[in-house]
Amino acid sequence: MSSTKSSVSTASALTDFKEITKMGLSISVVFSAIAGYLLGVESISFTTLLLLAFGGYFMVGASNAYNQIIERDLDALMDRTKNRPIPSGRMSVNTAFVIATSFTVLGLITLYVINPKTAMYGAISIFLYTSVYTPLKTKTSLAVFVGALPGAIPFMLGWVAARNDFGIEPGTLFAIQFFWQFPHFWSIGWFLYEDYKKGGFFMLPTGKPDKGTAVQIIMYSVWTVIVSIIPVFGFTGDLKLSIVGAALVFLLGMVMLVYAFKLFQKRSIKAAKQLMLSSVFYITMLQIIYVADKFLR
Score class of each variant (00 low, 15 high):
S3D: 15
S7W: 14
V8E: 10
F17R: 03
T21Y: 00
G24K: 14
S26K: 05
V29Q: 07
S32R: 07
A35D: 11
L38C: 08
L39M: 11
L39C: 05
G40F: 08
V41T: 15
V41E: 11
S43D: 10
T47G: 11
L52G: 04
G55M: 05
Y57E: 04
V60W: 07
S63K: 09
Q68V: 07
Q68D: 04
E71F: 06
R72H: 14
D73C: 03
D73A: 02
R80V: 11
R80S: 05
T81G: 00
K82Q: 12
R84Q: 01
I86H: 08
S88W: 11
G89I: 09
R90T: 06
R90K: 14
R90C: 03
M91C: 07
S92N: 10
S92H: 11
I99N: 01
S102V: 06
T104D: 07
T110L: 03
I114S: 03
I114F: 06
N115I: 12
K117E: 14
G122N: 01
A123G: 06
A123C: 09
S125E: 04
I126D: 01
F127I: 13
T130Y: 08
T130W: 12
T130C: 14
S131E: 15
P135R: 09
S141A: 15
S141P: 15
A143M: 06
V144L: 11
V146L: 02
V146K: 03
L149N: 01
P150Q: 04
A152V: 06
A152N: 05
A152P: 03
L157R: 10
V160H: 01
A161V: 04
A162K: 02
R163H: 08
N164C: 09
D165A: 12
F166D: 01
T172Y: 05
T172V: 06
L173Y: 07
L173P: 01
W180V: 01
Q181A: 04
Q181N: 00
P183T: 00
P183C: 00
I188W: 09
G189I: 01
G189Y: 09
W190S: 00
F191H: 11
F191Y: 15
Y193D: 11
K197Y: 02
K198R: 14
P205E: 08
P205D: 05
G207Q: 09
V215I: 15
V215Y: 15
M219G: 08
S221N: 13
V222C: 03
W223F: 15
V225E: 04
V227Y: 04
P231R: 05
G234M: 01
G234P: 08
G237Y: 06
V244L: 13
G245Y: 02
A246R: 04
F250I: 11
L251P: 10
M254R: 08
V255F: 15
K262N: 15
K262Y: 09
Q265E: 12
K266M: 13
A271L: 02
Q274E: 15
M276S: 09
Y282A: 02
T284K: 07
M285N: 12
Q287P: 05
Y290N: 10
V291K: 00
V291N: 05
A292L: 13
K294R: 10
F295K: 10
L296P: 03
